[in-house]
Design a protein around this nucleic acid. Structure first.
Length: 115
DNA sequence: ATGGTGACTTGGC
DNA sequence: TGCCAAGCCACCA
């Protein structure tokens, strides 16, 4: 095709289903393990959409029981700035699962989920 | 349509 | 090890 952009009719996309796929992937992270945003995006069929994963978690329903605390950055840092309420909540939940943070970071070599 | 923002990632210094 | 610039994705003003 000469001009593919003109042929994108993209009628009703279904981001819902893609989000469900992501939720399912996050729910599969075992207790005591963590996964990175990018890793989860790829596993959910959305490679390269790490920021989208962050957005989904940000907009997670309040009543959701998803283990959001097991999702961290690829470098082992948490998604929140240190000393924030959310940061502390996540810290506690991780520690409850036996995950100890070193200098505000999770030792990925040890705790990263490897499906 | 365009530019800015964020619970990101990767590659180079 | 750590900071920065680009690249990426979805959303919003």
């Amino acid at each position: 095709m000469k001009d593919p952009q003109q042929h994108q009719h993209q009628h009703s996309p279904e981001p819902l289903q893609e989000r469900q796929q992501l939720y399912q992937t996050i729910a599969a992270i075992p207790h005591g393990k963590v996964a990175s945003y990018g890793q989860l995006a790829a596993l959910a069929g959305q490679a390269g959409a790490a920021r989208w994963v962050g957005w989904c978690l940000r907009n997670l329903p309040k009543d959701s029981s998803l283990p959001w605390h097991r999702v961290i950055t690829a470098s082992g840092k948490l998604g929140f700035p240190p000393a924030t309420e959310s940061f502390l909540r996540q810290c506690e939940k991780l520690q409850q699962e036996g995950i100890r943070l070193k200098n505000h970071k999770v030792p990925m070599k040890v705790y990263q989920w490897q499906p």
